[in-house]
Nucleic acid binder design. Structure first.
Lengths: 193, 193
DNA sequence: GACGACATGTAAAGAGTTACATGATTAT
DNA sequence: ATAATCATGTAACTCTTTACATGTCGTC
C-alpha cells in the first residue's frame, strides 16, 4: 500500500513518542506544520489506515468516560519510516505565499500601498520567528522534564526556522528601504539624518 | 463573484502583457511558480470564467488553422487586481518540503544516510538558484528587446529568490559540517523510548 | 517523416481544508 | 456555571494535479 507524506508525518511523530490523534495534531502544529501541515480531517482516517496495515497499534486509554486512543508505532512502522527517510532522491521545495504574489504584482498600486504591503510581510516573518522562539522555550522545558527524546537534529531544524524568518524579515525590510530611496530623487524634502 | 488566488495570478500576468493560456502557463512557470504554481487544468477554465465576468477579454488570433485565443485584462480586471493587492492583511507563508520533513525525522537512520540527505538538499537549492539566474538572463534579453514592461519590483523578487536559495544551501551545508564534527568525539549515548 | 513546440480543452483522481456533530474533563 | 481544553470522527467542499484527447506548425 502506498503511503502519503501525511502518513509519514504521523508515523514520524509517533516515533518520537506515542500519543492520541489529538496529541499528534498538537505536536504537528508546533513542529512539522512549518514544512508540512496536517489537519484532523487527515489524521483520524489515516491513523485507522495505519493501524489496519500494522504500522501503528492502538491501546484504548480512556480517562473516566472520555475516550482516548493511544497510538504506538510498530517495528514495521519504524521500518517503513526509515526506508522513506533513506530515499534521498525526490522532493521539490514548494512555497505558497499570497503576500509575495501581491508584491510581485504591486507595480499596479500606489507606492504607499506597496510599502504597507512590505511592512505587513516583515511583521509576518518577525512574528513567525517569535513564535518559533516560544516553541523552542517550550521544548527545552519538556526536554528538561524528560518528556521528549534527545535529538541532534530537531533543535537545529527549529533554529533553522528562526534564522530563516529573520533572514526573510531583513530582506523585505531592506527592500522597503531601497524602494523608498529610489522613489525620492528628493526635491526640497528633508532627508533623514 | 469570489476570485481565487489562481484568478489573480492569471490576471496579474495578463496585466504584464496580453497572451494565450499557453503563454500564461509559460510565464507562470518562470515566475510565479516559485511562490504560487498553476496548471493548465486551472488556467483554461479560469480564463473562461474571467472572460464571462468581464475581467479579461478575448480576441481570436489563429495562425493559419491553429487556433489561438489572445486574452487581455480589462479596466474592471485591473481594478480587481489592484484592490486585491491593496488588501494588505491576510496571507500565511506556506511551505511543503518533503526533504526537510525527512531531515526532521532523520534521527531514525544511519549518519551517512543523514549526510546523503543533506547533500541532496544542498544540491537542490544550488540548482534552484542556478535556474533563477538563467531566468534572470532570459528576462534581461526580453527586456532589451522591449518585450517586457519595466518594473522596479519584479527583478528584485527574482534576486530575492536567488539569494534565498543561496542562503538555504549555505545553511544546510553548514549544518552538515557541524554534524560531522559532532559525530566524532563520543560514539556512546543513545535513544530512550 | 518525425519530433518538439504551440495550442486548447475535459475528466477523473487525489490532496487538503472547513464545517459540522458530539461529548467529557478541567480550570476559572 | 461556563469557558477552555481534550477527544473523536464524518461530510462536504475546494483546490490541484494528472491523464487523456485532439490538432497545427516549424524545423531537422
Amino acid at each position: 500500500m502506498e503511503l502519503s507524506n501525511v502518513s509519514y508525518v504521523i508515523l514520524g511523530l509517533l516515533f518520537l513518542r506515542p500519543g492520541s490523534g489529538y496529541d499528534v495534531k498538537q505536536i504537528a502544529d508546533h513542529s512539522t506544520r512549518h514544512f508540512w501541515a496536517i489537519s484532523f480531517g487527515q489524521i483520524y482516517p489515516e491513523l485507522k489506515r495505519l493501524t489496519e496495515t500494522g504500522l501503528v497499534e492502538v491501546e484504548e486509554t480512556p480517562t473516566g468516560s472520555r475516550q482516548r486512543n493511544l497510538y504506538r508505532i510498530t517495528a514495521a512502522g519504524r521500518e517503513a519510516l526509515s526506508t522513506w527517510v533513506a530515499d534521498t532522491t525526490r522532493g521539490p521545495y514548494e512555497v505558497r505565499d499570497e503576500m509575495l504574489l501581491k508584491l510581485f504584482f504591486s507595480d499596479s498600486v500606489a507606492p504607499e500601498e506597496q510599502r504597507a504591503l512590505l511592512d505587513a510581510i516583515v511583521a509576518r516573518h518577525r512574528a513567525a520567528a517569535d513564535e518559533l522562539r516560544a516553541t523552542g522555550e517550550m521544548l527545552r522545558q519538556k526536554h528538561a522534564k524528560g518528556q521528549l527524546p534527545h535529538s541532534p537534529v530537531r533543535p537545529e531544524v527549529l533554529r533553522f526556522g528562526i534564522e530563516l524568518h529573520n533572514w526573510l524579515a531583513d530582506w523585505y525590510a531592506g527592500f522597503r528601504t531601497k524602494l523608498e530611496g529610489e522613489a525620492r530623487p528628493a526635491p526640497e524634502e528633508e532627508v533623514e539624518r
